[in-house]
């Protein structure tokens, strides 16, 4: 059973996003190439953009049902289908960077939050097979923010977990489709938006906002890749080992690509006359404390797995503060 099989398996993936998203070139495609290489060409993956086979919002369920062989997206998108995705996406003011996120999710046997997510995925006929840190999901505003009180009363586009964070900080979250944000900020319907930093130039936000507030509400926003369980089980043991074998490597490789993309996007903003504000460590600590007290319990309440995951996350932060 060692070595590549004779037969080539052809898969069709449809993520929750299209080619315009940073997750396409910096997350999913490098992973697909790594899979094809690691399996010595015995697994070939065709990637279709969101909307081609099903809408982005339906893509997770389509992979679970076997309409596609795989999916990529964020826990903030499919969180309504699998609450544990929120753990993989990253907590409000949770992990600070790629290394911390890896440690709490997979790297350190004391925590292994990833196992909770994998179990939830298997229960939904999916196998979690890829992960990447897209960098900060931050605030992009027309007003200065240096402390959390500065958010008070401001109307910002914020969806799902962002909205929970924003209202916890005293802001007024407004829900609207991605396509409407640009015009709404330009006209003044809203005063800013939460967004993944590497993607702000994709949305031309530098034209309408004045400030980027780092590290935002989530310093390390993650994207996940899932494979339909039947498609996964139809592979040989060798193929599955090869694919599992690239999980960590592609995580760090693609996270670095995203980090470079974040720098580029911020430079584009600066070139357009915008200012990048980095919150002080004390302010981040204040926001983290408030998030743990008021935002995290809402994630924990969504499922048993989430409750357990949030506890482990807290323990991880405590251990880290204690200097372990």
């Amino acid at each position: 059973a060692d070595g590549p099989p004779d037969e080539v398996t052809e898969w069709v993936f449809q993520p929750a996003f299209d080619q315009t998203d940073a997750g396409w070139d910096n997350g999913l495609i490098p992973w697909v190439e790594a899979v094809e290489e690691a399996t010595q060409g015995t697994v070939k993956i065709r990637v279709e953009p969101a909307g081609a086979l099903v809408s982005g919002a339906e893509a997770f369920a389509a992979a679970a049902a076997g309409q596609t062989d795989g999916y990529a997206g964020w826990g903030s998108v499919y969180g309504g289908d699998m609450p544990e995705g929120m753990l993989a996406f990253g907590m409000a003011m949770g992990a600070n960077n790629t290394e911390e996120a890896w440690e709490v999710m997979w790297g350190n046997p004391d925590y292994r939050v990833g196992d909770i997510v994998q179990e939830a995925a298997h229960a939904r006929n999916l196998h979690w097979a890829g992960w990447t840190n897209q960098g900060p999901n931050a605030m992009f505003t027309k007003f200065r923010v240096e402390k959390m009180e500065d958010l008070e009363g401001h109307k910002m586009r914020a969806g799902g977990p962002q909205a929970i964070f924003h209202s916890t900080m005293g802001g007024a979250p407004v829900s609207m489709n991605g396509g409407e944000i640009y015009t709404a900020i330009k006209l003044g319907t809203i005063e800013g938006t939460y967004w993944d930093t590497g993607g702000i130039d994709d949305m031309s936000f530098q034209e309408v906002i004045d400030y980027a507030i780092m590290p935002g509400w989530n310093p390390a926003q993650h994207q996940e890749i899932f494979i339909n369980l039947q498609s996964w089980n139809a592979l040989t043991d060798w193929q599955r080992e090869q694919i599992d074998g690239i999980f960590e490597e592609t995580y760090f490789q693609t996270s670095q690509m995203h980090a470079d993309g974040v720098e580029e996007a911020l430079q584009i903003l600066r070139d357009a006359g915008g200012e990048v504000i980095t919150l002080s460590d004390e302010e981040v600590a204040r926001m983290r404390e408030k998030s743990i007290a008021e935002v995290w319990p809402q994630v924990a309440a969504a499922s048993k797995g989430n409750a357990k995951g949030v506890e482990i996350y807290k323990k991880y932060l405590e251990d880290k503060a204690a200097g372990n």
């Binding site: 369920a61 679970a64 049902a65 939904r124 977990p161 962002q162």
Partner: peptide
Amino acid sequence: YEAGQLSLMLNQWTPTSVPIPI
């Protein structure tokens, strides 16, 4: 009908801050 059953199995809710069952 299959999609409805899948939705029930996944316990699908909208991923919005005020979730609505799908």
